[in-house]
């Protein structure tokens, strides 16, 4: 399990990077994957492979190794994208940074410690596809700044976190 819920804690929102950040490199990898199988016959001729001084088995071995390497890169990309997230609960926000298989950073801050939420949508693609950064400042100075980059609809996420903050503060006042 990625985190242990506290008593009464409910997950409100799971935020990941925009799908475009996954789709663009994925498309590139797919092109790289199929390029040798289409470009070699297209540019060097259909008989080029047959003219090589190696057996067909060797060519198939290299083709499979090529597919395996690109496939592993695709899986790495997908793992990075899917396991990199913000989990917003009714009590706290959990910031998970996944980088490859061996690097993982998990930070947590309490909702009631939030002081300021800033969103930043800058650039052509960001504006077109409505994704950007969200920065949350918490009580605790410079170390209390949390940034989630390239998330979809940062304005809606900001409003959702603000709603949770208001709810938490109201609950604290009444209790």
């Amino acid at each position: 399990m990625i985190y242990s819920p506290e008593p009464g804690e409910v997950v409100r929102l799971i935020i990941r990077k925009h799908w475009l950040l996954l789709a663009a490199p994925l498309l590139l990898l797919v092109i790289v994957l199929i390029a040798p199988f289409t470009m070699i016959p297209a540019y060097l001729g259909a008989t080029f492979i047959d003219s090589l001084p190696v057996s067909d088995t060797v060519i198939v071995i290299f083709s499979i190794v090529w597919v395996m390497v690109i496939w592993c890169m695709i899986m790495q990309l997908w793992t990075d994208h899917h396991l990199d997230m913000w989990i917003v609960t009714n009590q706290r926000v959990i910031d998970v940074e996944q980088e490859g298989f061996f690097s993982r950073r998990v930070s947590t801050f309490r909702i009631h410690r939030i002081q300021d939420i800033t969103i930043d949508i800058s650039g052509f693609w960001n504006t077109l596809f409505n994704f950007g950064d969200i920065v949350v400042d918490t009580a605790g100075g410079q170390t209390g700044r949390f940034t989630m980059r390239d998330i979809f609809e940062p304005k809606a996420v900001k409003e959702a976190i603000s709603r949770e903050l208001d709810q938490t503060l109201t609950n604290e006042r009444t209790s």
């Binding site: 990625i2 799971i14 071995i61 499979i64 592993c72 793992t79 396991l83 989990i87 998970v96 996944q98």
Partner: peptide
């Protein structure tokens, strides 16, 4: 080359399984 690829792929798969089993939400 073939054997190195097979061993590398098996090790890679084990690392991937380890990461997803630990952290998949």
């Amino acid at each position: 080359v073939g054997w190195v690829a097979i061993v590398a792929a098996i090790i890679y798969t084990l690392f991937l399984i380890n990461t997803w089993v630990r952290y998949s939400f």
